[in-house]
């Protein structure tokens, strides 16, 4: 397609001509922590170390209560929420609305061919509500993936980010996650590993929180049955993200 492509590749090729291919050791499979409770404890500890706030819940009703409390405590009036069916607990959106919170939507609905880029309304939101496809215990990281009902600005623009994570999705390490969930990257065009709130140290290496992204990240780590975010949905963007209900049990979540 252009001359540069051929010329660059040719120079690289002639440079390595005759040189042996350096070996790259096969990476050992990370040993998953057998004890799931210590894995979760590690996750909580690491997430808190990087400045996230972790809440744990083993009941759906309690989970809803916690989210409403977090939103209430922060004085949230305007909320960007993922499509209910893209949240592990779909009723969260409605509960927030019933509680007097106003929903702010992306300027264009999901699956639109072309989208508007009038983001001003979204930028006025006080909080974003999302669900994680994974957690990484050794770094306290949550994994988010974009999709038709899952705008990325939800976890980027508002000063407060509330994310629901099912405990069965916590992996020991990034390597373990990559190994098990590699398909995710073929399905979602933006997979984000988020480790704590936005921060900078560009002024004299002094840590300052909330420079561009959220100042506060609340992780709701839940143990009860819920509606998982399935990787396959992103792939089926055109046909919609139609999975609903509570019908999946915890076991089904384990990939």
């Amino acid at each position: 397609m252009n001359e540069s492509r051929g010329a660059i590749l040719e120079r690289v090729r002639s440079g390595r001509l005759g040189a042996p291919v350096e070996s790259r050791p096969v990476l050992p499979t990370p040993i998953p922590t057998k004890d799931s409770s210590s894995l979760l404890d590690r996750f909580v500890q690491e997430a808190e170390t990087v400045g996230a706030i972790v809440h744990r819940s083993d009941r759906r009703e309690l989970s809803v209560e916690i989210v409403l409390r977090v939103l209430g405590d922060a004085g949230v009036n305007r909320l960007i929420s993922w499509e209910p069916n893209d949240l592990p607990i779909p009723e969260l959106t409605k509960a927030a609305v019933d509680n007097g919170v106003q929903l702010v939507s992306p300027p264009t609905p999901a699956k639109a061919k072309t989208i508007s880029r009038e983001w001003a309304a979204m930028a006025t939101a006080d909080a974003g509500l999302t669900g994680a496809v994974g957690g990484l215990a050794d770094t306290g990281t949550i994994v988010l993936c974009s999709g038709p009902g899952r705008p990325r600005l939800t976890w980027l623009l508002p000063p407060l980010h509330v994310v629901v994570l099912h405990s069965s999705l916590v992996h020991p390490t990034l390597s373990a996650f990559m190994e098990e969930c590699g398909e995710l990257f073929r399905c979602s065009s933006h997979v984000a590993f988020v480790t704590g709130p936005s921060r900078t140290a560009d002024i004299e290496q002094t840590l300052t929180i909330g420079v561009h992204g959220p100042k506060e990240v609340h992780i709701l780590l839940v143990d009860h049955d819920c509606n998982p975010i399935k990787e396959s949905e992103a792939a089926q963007a055109a046909t919609g993200s139609g999975e609903t209900g509570d019908r999946m049990s915890k076991n089904d979540l384990v990939q």
């Binding site: 990087v50 990484l136 480790t195």
Partner: peptide, 9 residues
């Protein structure tokens, strides 16, 4: 840091 705050793929 163990991981950068935002690691986007």
């Amino acid at each position: 840091q163990k991981l950068t705050v935002y690691t986007d793929l």
